[in-house]
C-alpha cells in the first residue's frame, strides 16, 4: 500500500523540496499551490503526482477531499504554506497583520480540520506544519509572522493532544534561516550577525528541512506527537 501525502505550499522553495523528498520516500504526492499553477503542474508531473489549488483564503475541505478521492486515501498532510509581511510592530497595518495571521495560523487550523474526515476513520495520519524560529525568538519586524508561528506551535500541541489516541500524530518543523526566496532579504541584510548566532555557522537548505519532514511523516515516527523539531543549525543554544 502506497501512502498518500498532500503538501500545501508545495511550490515554495521548501515546499518543492518536501514534495521531492516525500516522493523519493515512496509516497504518492499531491502538490498544493495557491497561485503558481504551472510550477505545481510541472513538479507534480515530474513524479506522476497531482497538483491542486489550495488558496489560504478559501475553505480547504473540497481540495483535501479531491485528493483523498483521487487516491482513495489521505495519510499525510504537510503544511508549508505561509507568508510574511514585514514592518515594525507600531507601524504594522492591521490588514497586513490579519493577512499574515489568517494565512499562517487560520489556514493551518482549517487545513488540519479538513484532514480529519480522512484520517480519523482510518486510525492513521501524519500531519506536519512548518513553523519558524520566529515563533520562539526574535521576530523583529515580523510581529504578525512571529505571533502566528507561536500560535501555530500551540495549535500543533493541542491537536496532538486530542487526536493522538485516534492514531493521528501532529508535529511541527521549525526551520531557522534557510536559503530560500523568503529569507533572501534577511540573509543579505544581516548575514554576519545571523551566522554568529548559528552553531553550524551556515544557513540551512530546503533539502535539510524536507528530510526532517520526511522523518516525522514516516512509519517509524509514530510515537512522536506534539513535537516541534528545530532545523536551525543550533541557533538558540
Amino acid at each position: 500500500m502506497q501512502r498518500v501525502a498532500l503538501v500545501a505550499g508545495g511550490t515554495g522553495d521548501i515546499g518543492q523540496s518536501i514534495c521531492r523528498e516525500l516522493h523519493g520516500a515512496g509516497f504518492r504526492v499531491a502538490v498544493g499551490y495557491a497561485t503558481a499553477r504551472e510550477l505545481a503542474e510541472a513538479l507534480a508531473s515530474s513524479f506522476s503526482g497531482m497538483s491542486i489549488v489550495l488558496r489560504p483564503d478559501e475553505e480547504p475541505d473540497e481540495a483535501v477531499r479531491r485528493v483523498a478521492a483521487r487516491y482513495g486515501r489521505l495519510d499525510i498532510l504537510v503544511n508549508a504554506a505561509g507568508i510574511n509581511l514585514e514592518d515594525s510592530a507600531p507601524a504594522m497595518r492591521f490588514d497586513d497583520w490579519q493577512k499574515v495571521i489568517d494565512t499562517n495560523l487560520g489556514f493551518a487550523f482549517r487545513l488540519t480540520q479538513a484532514a480529519m474526515p480522512h484520517m480519523l476513520p482510518a486510525r492513521y495520519g501524519r500531519i506536519v506544519h512548518l513553523s519558524s524560529i520566529a515563533g520562539r525568538a526574535g521576530g523583529r519586524g515580523q510581529i504578525g509572522y512571529a505571533v502566528a508561528k507561536a500560535g501555530l506551535e500551540r495549535m500543533i500541541r493541542v491537536f496532538a493532544l486530542e487526536v493522538g489516541r485516534k492514531g493521528v500524530t501532529v508535529n511541527g518543523v521549525s526551520p531557522g534561516v534557510i536559503i530560500s526566496r523568503m529569507s533572501k532579504r534577511v540573509r543579505e541584510a544581516h548575514e554576519k550577525e545571523l551566522l554568529d548566532h548559528i552553531a553550524c555557522r551556515r544557513f540551512g537548505t530546503p533539502e535539510e528541512v524536507a528530510c526532517a519532514v520526511a522523518f516525522l511523516v514516516s512509519e517509524g515516527a509514530g510515537y512522536i506527537n506534539g513535537a516541534i523539531l528545530p532545523v536551525d543549525g543550533g541557533m538558540l543554544l
Binding site: M116, P117, L120, P121, E162, V163, K166
Partner: peptide, 13 residues
C-alpha cells in the same frame, strides 16, 4: 466530542 465527530466521519465512509 471527538468520538462524536469520528463516528460521523466513519458513518459517512
Amino acid at each position: 466530542s471527538l468520538d462524536f465527530l469520528d463516528l460521523i466521519f466513519s458513518l459517512e465512509q
